[in-house]
Simulated scan of single mutants.
Amino acid sequence: MKSSNIGGQAVMEGVMMKNGSRYAVAVRKEDGEIVVKTDSHEGFIKNKKILSLPIIRGVFNFVDSLVLGMKTLTYSAGFFMEEAEEENPKRRAVSKEEQEKRDSLIMGVTVVFSILLAVGLFMVLPYFVSNLFRRFTDSQMLLGLFEGAVRLCLFIGYILLISRMKDIQRVFQYHGAEHKCINCIEHGLDLNVENVMESSKQHKRCGTSFLLIVMLISVVLFLFIRVESPLWRVIVRILLVPVIAGISYEFIRLAGRSENRVVEILSKPGLWMQNLTTKEPDESMIEVAICSVEAVFDWKAYLTENFGKHYEEERREKP
């Protein structure tokens, strides 16, 4: 499989695809129409030297992904709030510029809150839970392993819990459509509904795999990095979050490009987790995902360059 530069994300009733700094959001409205928006997203760090540094680039890419994800999710959700806006005269009276400022503020607060909540729930809480067992053992190794087990159980339990929500199940279907489109292209197949439906819904560069790798790497690091002070144990866990995210990013990046047997084996847990976060999409969802891909990625040129395929240019009749 030849890796491409395209990546994506599921949104409400749609798919976002990103290629370099360009991204497209395709959303199917309630009347069945597919709306596609294309734009560019420049990260908050513009220095290319910094963005080329291993591990460090992973931290900035992670934050940028969160920001873009919230931005596109807000955009897609906006289509399903139009009725509420029409019924609310106060909201109609707000200018577009004022509304954009409000949305930006809400998005920023949400991203910060999400990061703090994730760090608290998956990094700090497991430590305090493991402390309850200090009365039974003094082994730092056993306590570290128990902390890691709690962390993994919380993560998997959270995924299982949200996967039962009806709206999230549809998002997971669009998530599957996103993966299927990328796999279709990277396996040298023409991007059409039939080929995409036959493609796998699992992909090694998935965000689910990234998050699971974060959990696993944290277990290893916290086992070997030890401090005596209970307060510093908490502080160290917080300070190491960017390092863990950076290492995880490097692994996911390597996994997406490598066919090494060891890397393939290490990628398996993330692919298994994707069985929870990706569902089989229907053809209408595939159509939306294809629209998103074609808005930012020339898949025919990619197949020509990497698989030797050739496509005749479409002849347009002159008026």
Score class of each variant (00 low, 15 high):
residue 195 N to L: 13
residue 318 K to F: 04
residue 201 K to M: 11
residue 204 K to A: 15
residue 242 P to E: 12
residue 13 E to Y: 05
residue 255 A to Y: 11
residue 222 F to C: 09
residue 50 I to C: 04
residue 22 R to H: 00
residue 194 E to K: 14
residue 108 G to R: 06
residue 128 F to G: 02
residue 149 A to H: 01
residue 260 N to V: 12
residue 242 P to M: 14
residue 8 G to M: 07
residue 128 F to D: 01
residue 18 K to M: 06
residue 209 S to P: 10
residue 218 S to H: 09
residue 262 V to F: 15
residue 297 F to R: 04
residue 112 V to P: 01
residue 116 L to C: 10
residue 95 S to A: 07
residue 94 V to S: 08
residue 131 N to G: 10
residue 100 E to T: 02
residue 192 N to H: 07
residue 57 R to M: 08
residue 143 L to A: 02
residue 142 L to H: 01
residue 286 I to P: 03
residue 45 I to W: 09
residue 79 F to C: 01
residue 68 L to I: 00
residue 195 N to Y: 11
residue 200 S to W: 13
residue 309 K to N: 09
residue 185 I to L: 13
residue 80 F to R: 03
residue 161 L to R: 05
residue 8 G to C: 08
residue 204 K to P: 08
residue 137 T to R: 06
residue 158 Y to A: 15
residue 16 M to C: 10
residue 21 S to A: 13
residue 74 T to A: 13
residue 172 F to Y: 10
residue 253 R to A: 15
residue 222 F to R: 06
residue 274 Q to L: 14
residue 186 E to F: 10
residue 186 E to W: 10
residue 119 V to E: 01
residue 217 I to L: 15
residue 237 R to V: 10
residue 281 P to S: 05
residue 133 F to G: 04
residue 24 A to C: 07
residue 15 V to K: 02
residue 154 L to H: 05
residue 62 F to L: 15
residue 251 F to T: 08
residue 288 V to P: 06
residue 63 V to L: 15
residue 18 K to C: 00
residue 305 E to Q: 11
residue 287 E to K: 14
residue 244 I to K: 14
residue 287 E to G: 05
residue 118 A to F: 14
residue 308 G to K: 08
residue 247 I to T: 15
residue 273 M to H: 04
residue 77 A to H: 09
residue 175 H to P: 07
residue 162 I to F: 09
residue 227 V to A: 10
residue 126 P to G: 03
residue 25 V to P: 01
residue 249 Y to C: 13
residue 168 I to E: 05
residue 22 R to V: 00
residue 70 M to L: 08
residue 12 M to L: 10
residue 262 V to D: 14
residue 251 F to D: 10
residue 258 S to H: 15
residue 267 S to F: 13
residue 91 R to W: 00
residue 31 D to P: 01
residue 99 Q to F: 06
residue 213 I to D: 01
residue 141 M to C: 03
residue 140 Q to W: 00
residue 80 F to W: 07
residue 261 R to A: 13
residue 56 I to T: 07
residue 90 K to W: 04
residue 174 Y to R: 00
residue 8 G to D: 03
residue 242 P to D: 11
residue 271 L to E: 08
residue 161 L to I: 09
residue 67 V to D: 03
residue 197 M to V: 05
residue 50 I to P: 06
residue 157 G to T: 07
residue 124 V to H: 01
residue 258 S to I: 14
residue 24 A to S: 14
residue 222 F to M: 12
residue 110 T to N: 10
residue 155 F to Y: 13
residue 234 V to E: 10
residue 271 L to G: 02
residue 218 S to M: 11
residue 152 L to W: 04
residue 69 G to R: 08
residue 281 P to E: 07
residue 41 H to N: 10
residue 222 F to K: 02
residue 301 A to K: 12
residue 101 K to R: 12
residue 52 S to T: 03
residue 30 E to Y: 01
residue 256 G to F: 12
residue 155 F to M: 10
residue 66 L to I: 02
residue 83 E to D: 11
residue 213 I to H: 02
residue 259 E to N: 15
residue 301 A to P: 03
residue 273 M to T: 09
residue 50 I to H: 01
residue 265 I to M: 15
residue 289 A to L: 12
residue 3 S to R: 13
residue 69 G to L: 12
residue 170 R to K: 12
residue 152 L to C: 01
residue 166 K to W: 07
residue 125 L to Y: 03
residue 196 V to S: 07
